[in-house]
Structure formats: C-alpha cells, structure tokens
C-alpha cells in the first residue's frame, strides 16, 4: 500500500518534487531540440524517463552531501541546484557554461552545491566517491557521498574495488544504481550473470535494497532512510532503482533494440503524469496549480536556451587555462 503523500512530506515539498521532475524533463526535451538544430553537438545522453530517481534521491540527501554521477547527469546537477542557464550554456560550448565550455554535456561540475562531477568513463566515479567519503570522515565532516551510476557500470573493476573498499574502510558512501536495463544497446541479462543488481553487494556484506525508480516518493523514502543509515553508521549502503530511459542511449541511438510493447509498458509508468495524478487525487494540488508550475519550468528552460544562445564563445587563449593551478 502506497503511503499517503502528506504523511511523507509537506505540500510545498511535494510540489517541489514535481517542479524538479518537470524542469528536468523540459530541459532534456529542449536539449534534444537544440541538438537537432546543431546548437548542441558531441555526445548528448538524455535523462527523460528517469527523473524520479534524481529528484527523489536528491530530496533524501542533505545539501552538504556530495553527489557524483556518470554522463547522463544534467538532471542530477540541476535538481541539486545548478543554474539551468549555465548548464545549457555548457552544452552549447559557451564561455559562460558551468565548466566554461571545457566539459560539455558529460562533465558538469559545481562544487558550490557539492555536485562533484559527471564522469564519462563508465565506473570512473566509484573510487572518487569513496575518496570524497574518506576525506569527509578524515576531516570530521557530517556528510556522505552519493554515487549514481547505471546498470552497465556494475561489471567494471572499479565497481567491485570500490564496494569492497568502502565497506573495508567503513566509509559513508551511498551507492545508487539507476538500472534502466540497458548499457547502450545491451540488455542487462546479456551483460550481468546476476541481473538483480542489488544482490551483488552480498560479496561485500553491504546492505542493499531495490526500489521502484519510476516512483519519486518511493525513491525519496528509500534514499532518505539509506542516507541516514549511512550517516549514523559510517558504512556504505546500496540502492538499486529500476527505471527506464524513454530515449536512446544518446541522440545518436534510435533504440531499435527495444520493442514497442516494452516502450509502451514503461511509458505507462512515466513518473511525471503518474505523480501529477497522485498530487491531484490526494488534493495536494489542482490541475491548474500544476499547470502554473509547468509554465514556470518552461520559462526557466526558455531563459536557459536564450542565455546559452546569447553567450560568447570561449577565447582561444582559454585552451591553455585551468590545466594547472
């Protein structure tokens, strides 16, 4: 039985989750549009469909907690508080981008909000998350490291090395696997001997659980519980959130390896309309109130695109900057 929304969070917070999911979706869909126009180039991996994971998880963390992710990370950065204008400018390759146009879609970073990076080598963020958690403990800071990754990353050596290490050193790391069932075009059963990913942690004696990654409230509750557990015990914890990306792996991928029936099944579980329905059914908001939120999100993304379009390109001299201190 699902918990009534108001027993979980106050109205304002419940609506904020909706707003964050909506702005994430809107941002990604506008990215796709700008990519087809040629304004965004290079690799572009969109998050549409997975919003409940980033939004629910971020709500379950403290602002001081570190967040690291892979290369499908626009939503994680924006939900954490990155300025959508500067994220869009980064995707456009402009000097005003969040990484001055040096990073691009896959390498967002904003230490002012403890968003410690998007990493584009699969599994690269595992040990870095462990190191940040060690630094936090060493310095006596009350924060944990939340490490997001996909189902494809769990067969990298760094996954096993880092799970072992985090448990061995008793470090506050929350591993959050966004299982969207595909590593590019390879379905999880074709890459993992044990496709039920949360069970992988038994080799490291690490507690884990599986959660419905299409339900923002379920993710929020699981992550909040897990994060507090990690904080209290200074031990790692593992969450597998099952989810689905509505688009291909990247803009270059038409996703022909997935059946129409499978797509339809997951589209019916789209976290946005389903959550909107609950908000209305439980009298947290009217359709009109949600419409006002949606309009605000669209305006915000419009402004982001405009900002990116009007921003200057980096100077040529920038190629030699910011490599060494």
């Amino acid at each position: 039985m699902e918990a009534r929304l108001r027993t979980v969070l106050p109205d304002q917070e419940l609506l904020r989750l909706y707003e964050q999911m909506f702005v994430s979706r809107e941002f990604e869909e506008r990215c796709a549009e700008q990519y087809t126009k040629g304004h965004i180039t290079g690799f572009l991996h969109l998050y549409s469909g997975q919003e409940a994971v980033a939004v629910g998880a971020t709500a379950g963390l403290h602002r001081d907690d570190y967040i690291l992710s892979a290369y499908r990370e626009h939503a994680q950065a924006i939900v954490r508080g990155a300025d959508p204008r500067r994220v869009m400018a980064e995707l456009f390759g402009k000097a005003t981008g969040i990484c001055k146009g040096k990073g691009g879609s896959m390498h967002l970073f904003d230490p002012s909000i403890n968003f410690m990076g998007g990493y584009a080598i699969v599994g690269g963020q595992f040990p870095i998350s462990v190191g940040l958690a060690f630094a936090a403990r060493y310095r006596g800071e009350d924060r944990i490291a939340a490490c997001f990754f996909g189902d494809g990353a769990v067969n990298q050596g760094t996954f096993h090395e880092s799970l072992n290490w985090a448990q061995l050193w008793q470090l506050p790391v929350l591993f959050i696997c966004e299982n969207n069932f595909y590593g590019i075009g390879t379905e999880v059963h074709r890459s993992s001997a044990l496709a039920s990913i949360h069970k992988r942690t038994c080799g490291y004696d690490m507690p884990s659980e599986k959660v419905d990654g299409m339900d923002v409230i379920a993710v929020y509750r699981a992550v909040k519980y897990a994060a507090e557990k990690v904080r209290e015990t200074s031990r790692p914890y593992f969450i597998e959130a099952t989810t689905y990306r509505f688009r291909g792996h990247s803009m270059a991928d038409p996703a022909k390896y997935r059946s129409a029936a499978e797509n339809e099944m997951w589209k019916a579980r789209d976290p946005l309309p389903n959550y909107a329905k609950r908000l209305i059914e439980e009298d947290v908001a009217t359709r009109e109130a949600l419409g006002a939120i949606e309009a605000r999100c669209r305006t915000s993304v419009d402004e982001a695109v405009k900002f990116a379009e009007e921003s200057p390109w980096p100077e040529d001299s920038a190629v030699w900057e910011d490599i060494y201190v």
Partner: peptide, 28 residues
C-alpha cells in the same frame, strides 16, 4: 592508522580514492 593506510590490491581505486580525497580537501 587514519593517516597511514594499507589498501587492497586495487591500483585503479588507490588512485581514484586519492583523487576523491584530494577533491575533498586532503593531500594524499
């Protein structure tokens, strides 16, 4: 023991943990 750490035989992660620790304010 907190400043002189034996590690598992996981070279890639030794460096990754050092990177994270450096990013988090330490000097590994």
């Amino acid at each position: 023991e907190e400043r002189v750490k034996d590690t598992p035989i996981s070279e890639n992660t030794i460096i990754g943990v050092s990177i994270g620790a450096a990013m988090g304010g330490l000097r590994p």
